[in-house]
Write a protein that binds this DNA or RNA. Sequence first.
DNA 1: GCAAAAGTGTTAGCTTTACACCCATGA
DNA 2: TCATGGGTGTAAAGCTAACACTTTTGC
Lengths: 238, 238
Amino acid sequence: MARERQDIALAVSTVIFALRPHPETGLSAPWIPLVRRIAAPFESRWALPGGWVAPRESLEDAAARNLLETTALEPTYLEQLYAFGAVDRSPEERVVSVVYWALVRADQAQQSREGENVRWFPADDLPQLAFDHNVIVDYALWRLRTKVEYSRIARAFLGETFTLTELREVHEAVLQKPLDAANFRRQVESSGTLVPTDSVVTGGRHRPPRLYRYNETIELVDNGPLGHEKTGSTRVVS
Amino acid sequence: MARERQDIALAVSTVIFALRPHPETGLSAPWIPLVRRIAAPFESRWALPGGWVAPRESLEDAAARNLLETTALEPTYLEQLYAFGAVDRSPEERVVSVVYWALVRADQAQQSREGENVRWFPADDLPQLAFDHNVIVDYALWRLRTKVEYSRIARAFLGETFTLTELREVHEAVLQKPLDAANFRRQVESSGTLVPTDSVVTGGRHRPPRLYRYNETIELVDNGPLGHEKTGSTRVVS
DNA sequence: GCAAAAGTGTTAGCTTTACACCCATGA
DNA sequence: TCATGGGTGTAAAGCTAACACTTTTGC
């Protein structure tokens, strides 16, 4: 079963989400950074950050490296989204793209070099992108929204400790709808995913809220194909 | 941004599920076909059916073609599972595998050429496979079990029309646990996914059960990245 | 009639949702 | 003391799970 030359280029791209106020509503919402293409095809169009896979790096390493090189971002969460492999998705060359999605905190997002060639856009209001990237972003947004409800990805938008209101605001920003504060509190408290700390936040003109942290002792669900193994397939950097 | 030679081989493999009686319990359970390797690496080990991606075929087409060539199977359902890209998953060569999972009916499964080099195994009791294929099968099995509960993939194991008992037996085989017939009936009836036909099945020594078919007019959920478009990313062949 | 599976009814317990209300702090 | 968000209480509605019971067929 000898293999002849395939001549299929293998690329990785990443949809990176951060939360920022939406320009229209003013409410916190998902934004993504895009990179302006400086060569054909789709020259001068906005596209997802990405690049080629090197022969001696894993797909995930390739995604993280390209992310860092093009946007200077190091995400706190990185997960594979889908492999896109239609024959005509790139003119001329045959390119298969393994796409990842990532989450960064607002403070990390500000460290990305923004400028002529890198700019952040509200994820629900994008220009026409290069290749099939509009479809990809829509799918990533759908995954983010479904997964925030049953997993603990919201932590990637938060610091080590946080108040329940901060956690709820992350959920509201992702889902783009208000949540009942009382019921939200009971849901997360009964889920056992959080542990209260001894600290509260003082300084507000109101009762000081308690700080929580994530409970690291409980096992995760839907952690990808290697999630049942000792080493997860999703990269979580605290 | 000129790209030098990557020398990364792009392969597809597929985890194909069919339902058959389990050799120990006698109850219906998921089985998968495996292919015996006839060359290094992992010569003589069992492995998932698969092969290389041709330059001018999509990933999904490549999966379907390799399936047909190695096992003579044409699945009724085919969906991408995950792209596996660890550097050392194949010795010597660098191989990235885009893995699909597929469902076939029992009658279709019997048409696969079984023999020295192709054999069916109970999915929960496999020998040590080539490469990382044990991990892949476990993940596919997890996806099958979670997805059967919220989507309509069970249809891929059934004919055009079927009784509610037949549908329930598919769920029981996948989940490997008995379900309450009365509650199962109410769940699927209230979901609106099924439409009763005018026909019943006669011949049993009991009240003749009604035949149902799937309601094609309702929109699907979680149909992959292209699921929101007119053409789905999952292949459903009736 | 009787066995067997189809199909309906009923109830206890749990979860969800909506919203009223009290609490603790800074100004 | 008042405004503000933190946090608790509560009840209606809906859903789930378990199981009793009725229906319709073949023999």
